[in-house]
Amino acid sequence: MTRPSDIKPREGSVPGTPYAVFAEGQALGPVSFDITPEIVEEYFHASQADPALYLVDGRQAAAPNVLLPYMTVPVYQTYPPIQGIVMAELEMKWQRPIWADETTHVTATGSIVKKFEKRGRKYIQWRGVFANDKGQPIAELLNTFHVPE
């Protein structure tokens, strides 16, 4: 079982990455972790999700957003977070379920798509892919966050 805190630095725990250091095109990851039945159950409880809503052909799947606590792992492994980062946008596409009754080994990779300024604020946009141990995508994301100076 891998908890997000086991694989991603917390804001303030290490020196954070200023905006100028981010490089467009920079590869992120790979970072691997396991989502276990215990994590799935804990997430159902913490999010107050109804497991009955996540049956796929009669089989219990995890709530797909069980990946969200791990979302920033690829970017934070390469670029530790500076205090004050604010998430601005998130698009996620789920490709296949994470089954509630088995451990799913996940490998997260990605890349920095672009850096830009909008209304005097500096942003980073990055793309991530979360795949199972067969290399099949579980989810893909496009995330934009504001990096304070």
Rank of each mutant, 00 (worst) to 15 (best):
S5L: 08
V66A: 06
Y54K: 08
E102H: 03
V14P: 02
K115H: 04
L53P: 00
A108S: 03
Y76P: 00
S5Q: 09
R96K: 15
K8Q: 11
S47T: 15
L67A: 02
A88S: 11
N132A: 09
W94T: 06
Q95D: 14
T107N: 09
F130N: 04
M87S: 06
V113A: 12
V73R: 02
V129D: 02
V129E: 13
T144M: 07
A62R: 07
Q77G: 08
M87F: 13
V14R: 10
Q95I: 01
P51K: 11
A139W: 13
K93C: 01
T107K: 06
P4W: 04
T104W: 11
E42A: 12
Q125M: 15
H146M: 15
P4H: 07
L141R: 05
Q60R: 12
P80K: 00
P37L: 07
V106S: 09
L28G: 04
P69T: 07
R119P: 01
G128T: 04
K134I: 05
I85T: 05
R96A: 15
A131L: 01
R96E: 13
A23I: 10
F145Q: 09
G120V: 01
K115G: 09
P64L: 08
M87Q: 13
Q26N: 10
K8H: 01
P137M: 11
G16Q: 10
E11A: 08
E89D: 12
D50Y: 08
A27R: 11
Q60T: 02
Y79C: 00
I35E: 13
A100W: 09
T72I: 06
F130Y: 15
I85V: 13
R127S: 15
I124D: 04
A63N: 12
P4T: 04
A63S: 08
K93W: 03
Y70L: 12
E41D: 15
D133E: 15
H146P: 00
H105A: 14
S47F: 12
E149C: 00
I138A: 05
A27D: 08
E89M: 02
F22M: 03
W94H: 14
F22V: 01
K118I: 03
F145M: 10
Y79D: 01
